[in-house]
Design a protein around this nucleic acid. Structure first.
Lengths: 113, 113
DNA sequence: TGCTAATACTTAAGAATCTTATGTATCTTT
DNA sequence: AAAGATACATAAGATTCTTAAGTATTAGCA
């Protein structure tokens, strides 16, 4: 089962930041594969969504990049900047908090009745 | 703390359906107040987002409506149709599943290291 | 060797969904 | 009487995603 795309909306940035926190240095395509693997194919990040997001994060100064060549093939590695690190903590905490609230909302009946 | 609006994206429809499942019959404004109350102000559904969503749900046949007057003031009550009920179960389950996956993604480090 | 699939990045057009703003009207409280 | 809360609706703009197309390299296989 692949989650409907609506659900993933709004969480992509946070996922990317978290991946970089855990893995220190990653390139875009690698992120799509890693997330796919970790979520057992349930979350599929499309390149059309990912790359613009990475460019935004770079413009915002949350990540830095290094272009490297594996043979002739270019890979653009991303790492968290200091601001990126604190932003990651913020966002992950907010998302965790949000999910707790949502779980409460979705389970009201079971919890009160 | 109010959650950044990005987080709520994609969950509004599910929240509305769940509210109707728990409360049987509600009108739009009431939903905004109920969600605000239940989430201690953390989730604020704006009317500009809610009403179009309710209209969509009606067009999709997931809810039925009844217009009632409280004095001269109109209230449009919404209820789940049979299709709406099964759709609610589907969506709530999917969201719960998605949140488990996200929790796993966000906590990898704590779980593996 | 030549084809296909996978790897790796980019960007543009369109769709979906939300914010912000505005409008209308009624009712309650001060 | 005015202000704020209640109750609905919708339009313009912003954001973020999907879909699609393009370019190029590398790996695997028949």
């Amino acid at each position: 089962m692949i989650y409907s795309s609506e659900l993933i909306k709004g969480t992509l940035k946070t996922i990317v930041l978290k991946m970089l926190e855990d893995n220190v240095r990653m390139y875009g395509y690698e992120m799509t594969q890693k997330v796919k693997e970790l979520t057992k194919e349930r979350i599929q990040i499309t390149e059309g969504a990912l790359y613009p997001t990475l460019h935004m994060l770079e413009q915002e100064g949350l990540v830095t990049t290094e272009l490297e060549y594996n043979g002739k093939r270019a890979r653009k590695y991303y790492s968290l900047s200091p601001e990126g690190k604190s932003k990651t903590t913020e966002r992950v905490n907010e998302l965790a908090d949000f999910m707790n609230t949502m779980k409460f909302l979705l389970d009201i009946k079971t919890q009160t009745a």
